[in-house]
């Protein structure tokens, strides 16, 4: 069910403001692709344009093409709601629904799509998703408790469980570990490694070590110049990016000589 994503000449706007310009890349299926770059260079904006979450912000729009397995996401006939059901997302700050139990949080996406499920079916799905997010053993005795009662790292894994419960083709992660401690971060990174076999994963991170640890391919975003739109500077295999990047600016950023 994992799918590849082809992006060509994508320009992303907030109203009249061009935030990201001319991005083209191919994201491989069943692999982890990481985006790195300084703050405000458009990594998250670009990520959100991959499941049409970008246009949730008033005035935001996109020019160019995003193809998921040959299907263009921005055709007028395509319903953004359907796109988001295929392409799941995990946010920077853990955001389980505060009024729902752990159990209901996992099922929340599934309930939107479907007819009523049998109790046994939902039980199975909850267990499968929580196991998939490496959270099952920690919460199996308190599924009825509110999701907000968990620790930050557990909440983030709950959000991942919620996202994979709808069996998306692609999973987008917007700095999923930036609000977490090192141990929770490591738990999520392990999870990303496991999820890779079933999903196409795209992750935005500020942490270059994290990009190096989890990803197969890496894209480096940067502003053209101060006040200019962000752009994709280099897109390469992670190995090459961190050892012998093609672009000087990439090397400067990765080795810490930024500027």
């Amino acid at each position: 069910m994992a799918k590849s994503i082809d992006v060509s000449d994508l320009n992303i706007y907030y109203g009249d403001f061009l935030a990201v310009e001319g991005v083209s890349m191919t994201i491989k299926a069943r692999s982890v692709t990481a985006f790195i770059g300084p703050s405000g260079c458009g990594k998250s904006t670009f990520l959100r344009s991959l499941n049409r979450m970008h246009e949730v912000i008033p005035g935001a729009r996109v020019e160019g093409k995003v193809m998921v397995d040959g299907q263009s996401l921005y055709e007028p006939s395509v319903d953004p709601v359907a796109v988001r059901r295929q392409i799941g997302m995990v946010f920077q700050r853990p955001n389980p629904f505060p009024t729902m139990s752990i159990y209901d949080n996992v099922l929340s996406g599934k309930k939107l799509n479907s007819k009523r499920m049998k109790k046994s079916e939902s039980d199975d799905l909850v267990e499968k998703s929580l196991r998939g997010a490496n959270l099952w053993t920690e919460v199996k005795d308190r599924l009825g408790k509110p999701g907000m009662g968990l620790s930050g790292g557990q909440q983030q894994r709950l959000c991942i469980a919620r996202a994979i419960a709808v069996e998306p083709q692609v999973l987008l992660m917007d700095e999923p570990c930036s609000a977490l401690d090192p141990i929770s971060t490591s738990a999520i990174e392990d999870l990303i490694h496991e999820l890779k076999s079933d999903y196409t994963i795209v992750i935005v991170t500020h942490n270059m070590q994290q990009a190096a640890r989890v990803s197969d391919e890496t894209g480096f975003f940067n502003l053209k110049a101060t006040g200019e739109p962000g752009q994709l500077v280099e897109f390469n295999s992670t190995k090459q990016m961190f050892t012998n990047p093609d672009n000087e600016a990439t090397e400067a950023y990765i080795s810490g000589r930024f500027g």
Binding site: V56, A82, R85, F91, N95, F97, G109, A163, V166
Partner: peptide, 11 residues
């Protein structure tokens, strides 16, 4: 963030 969570699930 909660509204976006729901939208991202395809609500």
């Amino acid at each position: 963030m909660h509204q976006e969570a729901a939208l991202a699930l395809g609500a």
